[in-house]
Nucleic acid binder design. Structure first.
Lengths: 333, 333
DNA sequence: CAGGCAATTGTAAGCGCTTTCATTAATTAT
DNA sequence: ATAATTAATGAAAGCGCTTACAATTGCCTG
């Protein structure tokens, strides 16, 4: 491997000068700059970022922890981040936490050992205190899809309550009054918040929340179908179903059809997230858009601004969901 | 930041010994090991992997280049890789190439600058020669979803021809003889190979391939719908449609239904890839399974074996697709 | 109990770069 | 033309670790 030293000798300058042209720092006369560049090309020099990181005490890499890599959610989020980061020549070191406290901590620790300049964390098992503590230790990090009051400036999240509200509000607006709710697992804050929004819309409309019209699922398609069957088995009446996410909505629609109900003629269905496939179905799924990619972008902006001090990017801590009207909701006859 | 030196002083040993206990190399008496561990904990020592990498000339990180981060494909693939790599305490540095030659090269170069021990590349714009050249220069890399004869040992791919064959074979097996084919964009080798498989199945059955029953789309849902409309507009007759991927199949099914055709009663449809949503539909989409995650796993195994010399993992260069029977295909009446 | 061998530990030379500080060259002001 | 500035460079001290190689120590054997 050719080093800066060899380049400097070939160019007849000191290694300090070579370093200056590589990093475009300090002042270098155009003539010597060309000399150095020529030497680098001739020798096939490749900058050693590891050595540079050690010497400069910055790695230009941000660590990213997500629960899983599969599925389209985290890919979209990381895609948003990557786009912004790449423009600033920063790289991403990725790790998965599997929603397990021990693993999450180990991964964070590993990324810190690798001296990431900043961390972007989508962690679910680690406690708030642990994260607050890291921030207080001076670790630069942004927490996505999670809100922690003590470090609210480090958090970026979606207004899930508003999303839940919007979904049910839509059903109410088009005339439904008996609205079932298929919730996500209450182990997750998102599930709870979306349900809160549902209740808000109901109460705002002067309607009583009926717990027996609610079913706790787990965000998976299957649990959506199970929810529908459970509700119908109990003899519950409803003309609309609001779901905690699109996958549950798909499951619900399948179950509904199996039981001879048409969507939306007999029963309206609304999802949450607006995953790609929501629009591929016929009819397209009416849902609430979760601006995932934008969240990833915001995380990148936070890091670029606060850690790398690169100008000021557009920024928001709490992002807004919005209603996407498609074909699975209609007024009750 | 506390260093190995400080730990060594507190423990009353040399820094070499501390390094030994950290890396579990060489021989260290149990008693002194405990002394060192205690000192590390007391001081809150955090290993500096950057310095270690520079000194040892290995980073324990593998660079990953994929076209994009969004969508579920690359997430699944990287997930497979990550799982195996994590078990061996290796990390992943991720970059996107956007199917652009300049960007792909720049990213590969960047990962090399960061001294990744190995690269896993899903690149589409860079030439075969460029990759062959890298291998010859001694760069440890594995190319996924692409086959290059000169460096076949570095390639891991799916047998797309076989997949295309399997799909059409299935249609033939259940009695179809007029089978339309909605291809992906011929700019991609996958599209071409899948079509070749289709033709093979046809010829094996003694049927003539009819180019006017083929439509070149671009792997997106929309083009699947367009293909159906184009074929139908030409007055083409067919009782089955084989698609280059699931998304096109979705588009095709939507278009078919719009035109009053039932799936599978009037027309059978088969996809390719077996993405998650293929099973969420009613009826579920019959398709060809693309073992994406397994490909990611194989890439990790290759790296673990060849680069890190960690035992021998199960390995295959060419993976097999397989038929997944669901509800969108049936015998013609 | 000396000699020999293996198990432990320490010494110190880097790894390839950045960066402060000092030095020298080029300009500008006087 | 000379002093005062400013621009360009170079010298060299690390950054925090790994890893030969050397030096000790401990334990056996004869």
């Amino acid at each position: 491997m050719v080093t800066i030293k060899q380049v400097s000798e070939k160019a007849g300058v000191s290694s300090a000068t070579v370093s200056r042209v590589i990093n475009d720092t300090g002042t270098v006369k155009e003539k010597t700059r060309k000399l150095v560049v020529a030497a680098m090309e001739e020798l096939g020099y490749r900058h050693n970022v590891v050595a540079a990181s050690l010497a400069s005490n910055k790695t230009n890499t941000v660590g990213y922890v997500v629960p899983e890599l599969h599925g389209s959610f985290f890919g979209s989020m990381m895609g948003g981040t990557e786009q912004s980061l790449r423009a600033a020549r920063k790289h991403m070191l990725i790790a998965t936490g599997h929603s397990d406290e021990t693993i999450e901590k180990a991964q964070i620790e590993a990324l810190l050992s690798r001296r990431c300049d900043a961390l972007i964390l989508h962690v679910e098992a680690v406690t708030d205190d642990y994260l607050v503590n890291l921030v207080q230790q001076g670790v630069k990090l942004v927490v996505v899809n999670r809100y922690i009051a003590e470090i609210d400036d480090n958090c970026i999240s979606l207004d899930n309550v508003k999303g839940g509200y919007l979904a049910t509000k839509h059903m109410l607006d088009i005339g439904h009054t008996q609205i079932a709710y298929l919730a996500g697992s209450f182990f997750k804050a998102d599930a709870i918040n979306r349900l809160i929004g549902h209740k808000q819309a109901l109460s705002e409309a002067g309607l009583e929340y009926d717990a027996s019209l609610m079913y706790e699922g787990n965000f998976q398609a299957k649990s959506g179908a199970e929810g529908i069957r459970a509700l119908l088995a109990k003899g519950k009446l409803f003309s609309a179903v609001a779901c905690a996410n699109d996958e549950m909505a798909f499951g619900a629609m399948n179950a509904l059809r199996e039981m001879g109900k048409r969507v939306p003629e007999d029963i309206s269905v609304i999802g949450f997230d607006n995953i790609d496939f929501a629009s591929y179905l016929t009819p397209g799924l009416t849902t609430i858009d979760y601006p995932v990619r934008q969240i990833g972008t915001m995380a990148a902006h936070w890091v670029l601004d606060r850690v790398y001090g690169k100008g000021s990017h557009a920024f928001k801590h709490v992002l807004d969901p919005r209603l996407i009207l498609r074909g699975t909701t209609s007024s009750p006859e």
